[in-house]
């Protein structure tokens, strides 16, 4: 027995501990996760206030300063005569710094919103199917299989044609595909949790079906779900860049990290900074999500402290 209770003050003992309050406390004690939260928050703030940080507009084309190397101070060279471009410029002379930050807006928004959509649908759907089991489970999961078998690109093209090209649709399309895997994972976990004695104990205690899913099943599938979420966010960001590459995602002059990286990859021998800066931002973001995911998984498990 570990006397962790003694570290709590008397008030907390009386008021009751919630899983979430405890989890937050433990998450903030995890250094990697805390650093990642700060890093991610900084990137998000930069993206939000991007226009205020730079004198350049993201769509300002200037053919006199094409593919300039980064320079921190205004100088006499042609590239930085009109002011410094700290990340350099791209193939049509747009400031890369402001474009990376605008790209962050799109990438983070798509990543987070699509993941949240997939999380919400996937967890509810999977937990319900797994908990009910039997024939209903079979029907629900076959529906998932059918959706799985639809070619993703074909599905997006149909959506784009039917509903016109729309930024919001991008979220919907990606979310609508990502939740399928989430539902499968949650269903599998639910099937194993359903066998546990504490579920039977709750049933014997007169707790209804939906309350059992909400109070006992979902909190106990959180571990694998959180890990999968942190894998989904990067996946979604990459999917968005793929769609943009096909011309189905964000359109010029608006940009995203995926688009910047694919453009940068084309000129990586002559202008490596065009690949390096968006790639660094993306890599840092993905690392952050992974560390936060690990931290959340540990924080949400009361056995592990």
């Amino acid at each position: 027995m570990i006397a962790t209770g003694s570290t709590l003050n008397a008030e907390a003992i009386l008021k009751g501990r919630s899983l979430w309050v405890d989890a937050r406390r433990r998450l903030f004690r995890n250094r990697a996760a805390l650093a990642s939260i700060i890093a991610l928050g900084t990137i998000a703030l930069l993206a939000l206030f991007a226009p205020l940080l730079s004198p350049y507009a993201y769509d300002e084309i200037n053919y006199e300063i094409v593919s300039c190397a980064p320079g921190w101070w205004p100088s006499a060279t042609a590239c930085h005569a009109g002011g410094a471009h700290i990340f350099g410029t791209d193939a049509v002379g747009r400031d890369l710094f402001v474009r990376v930050l605008y790209g962050a807006r799109v990438s983070l928004a798509v990543g987070l919103v699509a993941t949240l959509v997939s999380l919400l649908i996937g967890v509810l759907y999977g937990a319900t199917a797994g908990y009910l089991g039997g024939r209903i489970d079979g029907l629900m999961m076959r529906a998932v299989d059918v959706l799985y078998s639809l070619p993703f690109v074909f599905f997006v093209i149909i959506l784009m044609v039917v509903f016109d090209r729309n930024f919001i649709l991008l979220f919907v399309a990606i979310g609508a595909v990502e939740w399928l895997t989430m539902a499968r994972i949650v269903r599998g976990q639910t099937l194993s949790i359903k066998q546990k004695e504490f579920i039977e104990a709750a049933r014997a205690g007169g707790v209804g079906g939906f309350a059992i899913i909400r109070r006992h099943v979902i909190p106990n599938v959180v571990g694998p779900v959180v890990v999968y979420v942190t894998l989904t966010v990067p996946g979604v960001i990459l999917t968005e860049s793929f769609l943009s590459f096909l011309g189905l995602g964000v359109q010029e002059p608006l940009t995203s990290w995926g688009v910047l990286i694919s453009e940068g990859a084309n000129s990586m021998e002559t202008a490596p900074w065009m690949l390096a800066f968006p790639a660094i931002f993306m890599a840092v973001t993905l690392f952050c999500f992974n560390f936060i995911g690990d931290g959340l998984r540990d924080a949400l498990d009361p056995r592990d402290r």
Binding site: L19, F198, A201, G205, V207, H216, P219
Partner: peptide, 18 residues
């Protein structure tokens, strides 16, 4: 037979609430 993610007080209260 106890939910590992619930404090024991919540587990004891559960049948009462239901």
């Amino acid at each position: 037979s106890l939910d590992p993610r619930q404090p024991v007080g919540v587990s004891i209260a559960e049948p009462l609430k239901a």
